[in-house]
Each structure stands twice: as C-alpha cells, then as structure tokens.
Computed example of a mutant assay.
Amino acid sequence: MKGVFVACFLISNILFGQKINWEEGKKLNWSNFKSKVNNQRGDNVVAYTNCGWTYSYVKSSNPKAPVKITIQTIFNENQSWKDVKRINDYVLLHEQKHFDVAEVFARKLRKEVSEKIKNGADFDRYFKTIYNTILKEYQDFQKTYDGETRNGMVEEKQAEYNRIIAEQLENYKNYKTS
C-alpha cells in the first residue's frame, strides 16, 4: 500500500493562499505581497516574507522498497505583507533573500535526504530527525540574518549576506529542483 503525506512548516493557511515555487532567476515583485495585515512586531518592519518548504513522499508498505521524496521551496503570497508607503527596491532585495535562504536550506535537506534515505525503513528511521535539524538551522539563520542586517537596514551586512546566500546556493546547486 502506498501512502502520500504532505507537510508544511512556517506557512499558515497554505491551502487557502497562492504560492510561488522558488525558481532559479525568478524574482519576487511587490505584487506578490498580498496580505493586508502586518502580523509582525515593530515599527521598523517594512515587509514580511512568508516562505518555507513543502514536502511529499510516496512509500510502499515494504520497508526495503525505495521511497520518493519531493521538497519544494514556496513563497506564500496571501501571508506576505508590505507597507506600501515605505517599500523600495532595496527592501524587496532583502525580502528576496529570505526566499533564497529558504531554497538554500531546502537544498541542504534534499542533500541529507538523498545521502541517508534509500528506502521506507530509512525514511521511518531518519527523516523526522533530518528534517527537524535542518528546520532549526533554517530558523536560526533567518533570525540571525534579520538581526545582523537590522531587517536590511545595515547595508554592509546586507551586502555580506547577499554574498553568503549566493555562495550557498552555488555550493548546493546539485540539489536544486529541475
């Protein structure tokens, strides 16, 4: 018997919102930020990017059979917000980098999965631990990114993170989706 399971994190109401899959070379624009509600704290928040991953898997009841796992990076338009009076191209770049960071960590997750999970038994034994480890690293990175750049306002730090994120995308290019 085959089962399919889809799980999401950092994304609320995904079934009710529009989503954009991360694609090489495809950039966000301000029209993608459709929420009218700012759920973030602080007056210095100009925009909020709601992004993360979805994953699905298909596995047999035979624990030795191969398992197919698909991991997508998504941007949730209806949960992403902007202050129309304060947005600009620089802020959009900062928000794009949040989406790019989600893709970096999706690639790290794909790498770990491809190296450690070969069949249903491996999936049952390792997937949750791998997922939770990468998720924690992702959340910590996003928090540090916003903290060190002060939500993109520290231009030198933003430039440094732009370079780091580009390097990480390149380092894990073998784990991008086609």
Rank of each mutant, 00 (worst) to 15 (best):
K27Q: 11
E23I: 08
D43F: 09
D100Y: 05
V37W: 03
Y90D: 15
E24C: 11
G42W: 00
K136P: 00
D146M: 06
D124W: 06
H98F: 08
T133S: 09
N29E: 12
F75I: 01
Q96K: 09
T133P: 00
I20S: 01
R41I: 07
D83N: 15
K64V: 06
N13W: 12
V45N: 02
L10M: 08
K36A: 12
W53R: 01
K27V: 05
V45D: 02
Q79G: 08
G147A: 07
K108Q: 15
S56T: 08
E95L: 10
T70V: 10
L93G: 10
T144D: 05
L135Q: 09
L28P: 00
R86P: 06
I74H: 04
V4G: 04
W53P: 01
H98N: 08
L15Y: 11
L92W: 14
K85Y: 14
L28F: 04
F75V: 02
R86F: 14
I14D: 02
T144V: 05
V37Y: 06
L93H: 14
G120E: 05
K111D: 12
Y131R: 07
L92F: 14
N13K: 15
V104H: 04
K82N: 14
I74E: 04
H94G: 06
W81Y: 13
L92N: 12
T73R: 01
A106Q: 01
A106V: 00
D146Y: 05
Y138V: 00
S60Q: 04
K27T: 11
Y48K: 10
D122E: 04
I14V: 11
F123M: 06
S114V: 07
H94Y: 15
L92D: 10
F127S: 03
E95M: 11
H98P: 07
Q79T: 07
N76Y: 10
E112L: 14
S12P: 12
G42H: 01
T49K: 03
S60D: 11
D89P: 08
A47T: 03
N44Y: 12
A102S: 15
R107G: 08
K19P: 03
N32W: 01
A102G: 08
L10K: 03
R86V: 08
F33A: 02
R125W: 09
N29C: 13
